[in-house]
Design a protein around this nucleic acid. Structure first.
Lengths: 349, 349
DNA sequence: GTTAATGATGATCATATGAACAAGTAATGT
DNA sequence: ACATTACTTGTTCATATGATCATCATTAAC
């Protein structure tokens, strides 16, 4: 191993330690059984029976304020789940159009929201439900990065635990933080579904191709990547080329570079880095050969690639992603779905 | 057909019309798409984002009170679900004891509640979850009557619809009302799970054995009963012999008769009518041969009979039911489970 | 033992929310 | 056309609830 690469790998270790360090912040608390029972009883009376906190407090001989606090805690530990789902009988024809037009396996379409955050949760909720009924023991799920993928874990509501492996499909980035880094998403998913998670111990982006090759030969990295390649299902985000895109927030691109890429015909990215134009063709990009993670070629061999895109800036990116042929399941909003369909007609050929 | 039986069957028709009549009260409202979208958006912002109703109202330019009403309506139509579930790591050893002691397939144990209503919901919630992960397309579920079975439908939270047939396993009773009659329970279950429901067009209890035989030969009745006999899973309640038991409320027994039956060693009933003593043996009862529905013999051939009993007056009834050998899955409370285990030791032999 | 620190508890108050009522509006029957 | 009914919308007010702060207990550190 050349000395230069050695040094760089040394630097990587510091980054990895940084990543590992953030883990401990979300430890599971001890929580004794009687308190759980109390919270369950209170929550049940409050939410299911519709009792007032005061009445519950009186019955159980505790202060009203304590009842309120226990209800709050019940939320925090997951005893109480409030879920907003979408009335059936919505947007099923739109889903059928997308399936037919792009030859994908299925589409999950959430209703429109005026608020971006709500929109993300709505789309993520659909994906979470899809996972709930799709996952069974010993399946492997490859997990990408980004806000949209991260939101999926927050919207999982199932009691049925099964033994699924969630494997990071791309390395980490300090800028992404707990919410968007694939290893943290994996951990949250595993906590909800009951399986195990596997971190890809590598940075998402490295300096040059030499470092990438060195890392890919590393047994730890190689093993996780190979595991991810054998996944039954992959969760990937679709990125856009706006000035506040994920790429810019990650520090991987300056706003100027994004603008240049956009002018050169790039409309979006898949999994956080595979750049594509509106016809689904890969475009040249400064990150080429420097990313540690699954590429389009790997994704194509995964039986069910779920592409998630909630923001309405992403219509052209979604179209490009669909045309690459890697997407099996598309999860997005009603507006995006309609825009993509009309865009597709406009840019035919 | 003898003239006497004919007359009685004529009377039945009036009863059936009465049963049918109650159906229309719970019609599904029309609900236009934009309102659904609005409710979904509002509910999402309120519950998922934690926004205040006032803030949402301001953003969407509608009155605060309207936001409140739409949230309420979102609850009513099922866009918002609040579920209280039980923290994992509770009562699993108790379940194992029951399985081992009585040779049943599994037990579902809910934590204790001081309030009977909450207790029922907790137990029903476990059964609902069990159904959610057990039911698949083209399965048949035989459905009994009673509050405990009825509460199951209220606690189903799933988006995944599948094609299940819910078949009434016993006739109806006017006194039972919408909540407890098997056909209504079937309909509610089918609405939640997405399958179809089938009513047993007969009263639960008839005057004498002759009428019963006449009805059982009726093709409509026979077909439904045969369908129920082929069920993959059955939901049955376990009744107790207290003075305000289901039997009394149904008007099938006077409190005196119940007291006599109790003195004679009857500890409970299965499915609303098969009377048993604490050793699981059938006891003589005034209803013998007059009930239209599956009997213990039929239940024994159903692969998964789920017995549901939440009230803590039912411990001895549960023990009797377990000892009949028809139960495959027992759903009850922690206290009941413990009582049943100690009772079993006390009445061994 | 003393002291700081952390966490739990309860009182007070501002705010969020739902219920009851009133006014307006559309649909329906006469 | 008019009255009637059913239904929706907004106002007012009582109540339910969460935030803030002070107090108290418990633990940890010295």
């Amino acid at each position: 191993m050349p000395a230069q690469v050695k040094m760089i790998v040394g630097a990587m270790c510091v980054i990895l330690l940084g990543l590992l360090h953030t883990e401990k912040s979300r430890m599971s608390e001890p929580l004794n059984d009687p308190e759980i029972a109390l919270m369950t009883e209170i929550a049940s009376q409050y939410y299911v029976e519709g009792e007032t906190q005061e009445a519950i407090a009186k019955r159980l001989n505790i202060s009203r304020i304590k009842v309120g606090r226990l209800i709050k805690k019940a939320h925090a530990v997951g005893i109480v789940d409030v879920r907003v789902r979408h009335h059936p009988s919505v947007s099923s024809d739109l889903e059928a159009s997308l399936v037919k037009r792009f030859g994908i396996a299925r589409a999950l379409i959430a209703p429109d929201f005026s608020d971006a955050q709500s929109q993300r949760h709505a789309v993520a909720g659909l994906v979470a439900d899809y996972l709930t009924r799709r996952l069974t023991d010993s399946k492997i799920v490859a997990v990408g990065m980004g806000r949209n993928v991260g939101a999926v874990a927050e919207n999982v509501f199932t009691q049925h635990t099964c033994d699924v492996s969630f494997v990071s499909a791309i390395g980490g980035s300090l800028r992404a933080g707990e919410y968007m880094n694939p290893d943290h998403i994996c951990r949250r998913l595993a906590a909800k579904f009951g399986g195990e998670s596997e971190t890809l111990y590598a940075p998402a982006l490295v300096q040059d191709q030499a470092v990438r090759e060195a890392l890919q030969e590393n047994p730890t990295v190689k093993q996780t990547l190979d595991r991810a390649r054998r996944a039954d299902l992959a969760l990937v985000g679709v990125g856009d080329m706006s000035e506040d895109s994920n790429m810019v927030r990650m520090g991987w691109f300056s706003p100027q570079e994004i603008a240049e890429a956009r002018l050169a015909g790039t409309v979006g990215d898949v999994m956080g880095y595979d750049f594509i134009d509106i016809h689904g063709r890969e475009t040249q990009a400064a990150m080429r050969g420097r990313v540690i993670g699954l590429d389009v070629h790997d994704l194509r061999r995964i039986p069910d690639v779920v592409a998630i895109a909630s923001e309405n800036t992403k219509a052209s990116g979604i179209l490009g992603a669909l045309r690459t042929g890697v997407v099996d399941t598309l999860a997005t909003s009603t507006t995006n779905a309609m825009t993509v369909l009309s865009l597709a007609n406009a840019t035919e050929g």
